[in-house]
């Protein structure tokens, strides 16, 4: 994990936000930067005026206070100008919102390269993979607690990913409400019992850049038995963000974003195990 942790805090700081590795995350961060500057300017102006007035109009017996009971012009100005800015901010963010959350919106992805199911419970995430046949509810499905591994197509040796590698998670809960929070992907969605929520992301950075911390190419698998992949320490962290009981703050999951060939080798090993179990049992 060391590498990811270091990156989290040293590099790519955008005004206290952790680095972002998802495609829609950039749009979210852009909204933040806009709001940040708009509110900072407002803050400095308002506090500045207040401090100035406090100094300028401090009690002075030689003077009488000026009787000013209001001003229509000012009221209109300071209602209309913020209104315009705020509405513009709202309108600017509707598209991003629809793209991330609204599955009936045209900008919502139509295709998902990878699908998994996650069922949350006190205090673990049960991740179900569809196996080699890519279909759920078949014998080669396998379930792993607290491990989310997803494949990507690499663009270069530095861990950057080709565009459009959409992962879909079908999220549910067995007991209480939990919330799937992936800080570096700007993902958060409550896991609600009795309801299946869809979450998607498009991660643009692999968690791993080679066995010796150097380069990695897309056709390398490193492992036939899937072990190496699991041994890689580097991972993004996934947290639970909705109070779910006494173990809430320990409900951690790892996300590993790895080259497709390696991932497929690993899925095959796991799927075969599952099939063997199904036949044997």
């Amino acid at each position: 994990m060391q590498q990811v942790r270091a990156e989290h805090f040293d590099a790519a700081w955008k005004w206290w936000l952790p680095p972002n590795h998802s495609s829609f995350g950039e749009e979210i961060d852009l909204m933040y930067i806009w709001i940040f500057w708009i509110t900072m300017v407002t803050f400095v102006v308002v506090e500045g005026v207040m401090v100035y007035f406090c100094f300028k109009y401090r009690r002075n017996p030689a003077r009488k206070a000026t009787y000013i009971a209001g001003s229509h012009k000012l009221e209109v100005a300071w209602t209309v100008i913020p209104a315009i800015i705020l509405v513009a901010l709202g309108v600017a963010s509707t598209n991003t919102w629809a793209k991330i959350k609204n599955s009936s919106d045209p900008s919502y992805p139509q295709e998902f390269q990878t699908e998994v199911k996650i069922a949350a419970q006190q205090f673990a995430w049960n991740v179900t993979y569809p196996g080699t046949d890519r279909k759920f509810d078949t014998a080669d499905d396998f379930m792993l607690p607290n491990i989310l591994n997803v494949p990507v197509e690499l663009k270069d040796g530095a861990g950057n990913v080709t565009s459009e590698e959409n992962v879909r998670i079908m999220l549910s809960s067995k007991d209480v409400i939990h919330s799937l929070f992936i800080p570096v992907l700007r993902v958060k969605q409550d896991a609600v019992p009795g309801y299946i929520g869809n979450v998607w992301f498009d991660c643009d950075r692999a968690t791993y850049a080679g066995p010796d911390g150097k380069h990695l190419t897309g056709d390398q698998t490193y492992s036939e038995d899937g072990k190496t992949l699991l041994d890689w320490e580097e991972a993004y962290e996934i947290a639970c963000a909705e109070l779910c009981g006494l173990g809430h703050s320990g409900m951690r999951m790892q996300l590993k974003v790895v080259p497709r060939a390696a991932w497929e080798a690993w899925v095959k090993v796991k799927s075969d195990e599952a099939k063997k179990r199904a036949e044997g049992g």
């Binding site: 005026v49 000026t66 000012l74 913020p82 705020l86 901010l89």
Partner: peptide, 23 residues
């Protein structure tokens, strides 16, 4: 977003009340 507006209006009016006062 709209509800932030009246809150802002109130802040501006408080500043207006300080304006020219004997604080």
């Amino acid at each position: 977003i709209m509800i932030a507006l009246p809150s802002a209006v109130k802040v501006f009016n408080w500043l207006g009340t300080l304006w020219g006062g004997q604080i």
